[in-house]
Design a protein around this nucleic acid. Structure first.
Lengths: 143, 143
DNA sequence: TTGCAAATGAGAAACATTATCATTTGTATG
DNA sequence: CATACAAATGATAATGTTTCTCATTTGCAA
């Protein structure tokens, strides 16, 4: 498990506190993991960290605003978070096996900006999910 | 205002009831309107239809499963629905006023297919939401 | 008409999330 | 290294959305 890095919090303008370091550490130890607030809360308790659920929600929102985490609004009504790896990406989700693959396409990105600008919008953010069938024989995950 | 068409419900395997006809009629009378369950409920009451909120939620979910409506999970935590017009489009959502605008961009569509094909996926479906600030002065809604 | 399964509506319950506020903690300062 | 003070925390209440329960009503087929 990686050590938490207080500088990351400082750089984001956030005080380096125990709950924040624990939460950041959790995400850094599971780089590709998508976790809900509830997931994070339970995992911290399992790790022996005594944290409040309200704090988890607060910190996740702060981390999102600071750019440390990315929030996704999947179906199911709850937000999930993943570590912000620095570069924006979209997702392809395999409908057969549930596997999620990340991608980035500059043409799509620029067309989006153009479309929005033409309609009088200033793009703040976007989410693109492609739902597809993975054509590979060896689907690595089960649904 | 269009008359509701009981055959649509029959074809979907749903009994033709008063609340269902009223809800379908409401969506058909506002083709491009994105409405939450709360929106639908309030509108029906305003129209003088005495309906229960639980029924609205039930019927919206049934209509979605029957393919009459499309559900969207925008940021903000609540589902919104629109009439299934048959033809695909994406959405720009104004973060200031909640206004939703539809668009279709052939370049984005084809790039998506290309990206997926390159990675060994057969596209089944996708959802693209652009979250932006509406630059217009007269935002018609409040958050 | 009549019977009965299906649908409805009112309210309770289940969730996820946010707000409140007394207590604790991190950190800058002396 | 002690201290003060703003910021952060955690327990709990509150909010908002959606689902569940169940007694009553309704659509439809015989």
């Amino acid at each position: 498990m990686d050590k938490p890095k207080p500088e990351h919090l400082k750089n984001a303008g956030l005080k380096s506190t125990v709950p924040r370091l624990n939460i950041l550490s959790l995400f850094e130890s599971r780089q590709e993991c998508h976790m809900s607030a509830e997931d994070v809360y339970k995992q911290l308790l399992a790790n022996g960290d005594d944290v409040g659920l309200a704090t988890v929600y607060r910190v996740l929102t702060q981390f999102e605003q600071a750019g440390l985490l990315v929030r996704h609004n999947f179906e199911g009504g709850k937000s999930v978070f993943e570590l912000n790896q620095g570069k924006h990406h979209d997702h392809i989700v395999c409908l057969q096996c549930g596997h999620v693959e990340e991608f980035y396409d500059a043409a799509i990105e620029s067309r989006q900006k153009k479309v929005a600008a033409e309609r009088g919008f200033a793009v703040h953010d976007h989410s693109l999910y492609i739902y597809a069938d993975c054509l590979k024989k060896n689907c690595p995950h089960k649904r």
